[in-house]
């Protein structure tokens, strides 16, 4: 084992997804913590706006579950410069997900140990019922993602596994709800059974073992240049101007959103 990771390194959906997308970007961003100018112009003109709007929606829903008067939240949403936020929040209030119960944990972090490594998930909303664990993830995509795309995401695996292992009750099933604020009536729901969880555990364990075993020179650049189209290190790798790719957009959008919301930071803030 060559393990170049620092002691106490915490794996989460963003860094595992980054590794899957490009090993070299994982090395630069999460191990070397190497700042590099992002190719802002290569991103869409709405990238930043979408990030802020998405993050504001998350805050409003969080505030709703904390018990802040919904009328105040509606007024806040209505005064937000991006009009989509108000529409999204009203969609949320009208949805099945706005039902308040005592077993809900908004913006809740859980961490487990997987084969000696730390694995973290921060849930938008976790609901612990007697027979089910419901995980909700709020999204604000312009285009509704394909079911298959979400099913294969590292996020689905990490969230289900962490929730199941942190609250181990054999009879409980896990449901993972991706709720798109712009498409409120089309939630994408996955029911994850024990066998599927077992496969997730194996996949994630293999992935983490692989990361830990690689010598530094094997954190190689991806061969699929489409994945570089929104990567902040594209000029570092001399790969500026790669063809734009939806998956690359999604990956870097998710990284931006989670960092804006402080989801993947260490438990340290000054």
């Amino acid at each position: 084992m060559t393990d170049i990771l620092p002691a106490g390194f915490v794996f989460h959906q963003s860094n595992l997804q980054a590794f899957k997308t490009c090993r070299f970007s994982f090395l630069l961003r999460y191990i070397r913590k190497f700042p590099w100018p992002a190719p802002l112009a290569a991103r869409t003109s709405t990238f930043e706006q979408d990030l802020v709007a998405g993050s504001t929606l998350h805050s409003l829903i969080h505030q709703y579950f904390l018990g802040i008067d919904p009328e105040l939240l509606v007024s806040s949403a209505a005064n937000f410069p991006d009009a989509r936020v108000s529409v999204w929040f009203n969609n949320f209030l009208a949805s099945q997900y706005a039902t308040l119960t005592s077993n809900q944990f908004p913006e809740h972090s859980l961490q487990i140990t997987l084969d000696g490594s730390l694995l973290l998930a921060k849930f938008d909303l976790l609901t612990l019922n007697v027979d089910t664990i419901q995980i909700c993830d709020w999204k604000s995509s312009r285009v509704i993602p394909k079911r298959q795309f979400l099913q294969d995401r590292i996020q689905t695996m990490v969230y289900s596994l962490v929730a199941a292992r942190a609250h181990p009750l054999p009879s409980r099933s896990i449901t993972m709800h991706y709720w798109e604020a712009g498409f409120p009536d089309q939630p994408i729901i996955f029911t994850i059974e024990a066998a599927q969880l077992q496969r997730y555990e194996e996949t994630l364990t293999d992935l983490i073992t692989c990361i830990r075993s690689l010598p530094v020179e094997q954190f190689e650049r991806t061969t699929d240049r489409k994945k570089c189209s929104y990567c902040e290190y594209q000029s570092y790798c001399a790969r500026s101007g790669s063809t734009k790719d939806e998956e690359s957009f999604n990956n870097w959008f998710e990284i931006g959103l989670s960092e804006l919301q402080g989801q993947t930071k260490e438990q340290t803030e000054f």
Binding site: S59, I68, S76, I112, L118, E269, F270
Partner: peptide
């Protein structure tokens, strides 16, 4: 395994985050 259960902060960071969260 439970390092998530330790949070190291300054009061200024708590103040700023809580104002943002409870802004309404």
């Amino acid at each position: 395994p439970s390092s998530q259960q330790i949070s190291i902060q300054t009061m200024s960071s708590i103040v700023r985050r809580m104002i943002a969260l409870f802004w309404p």
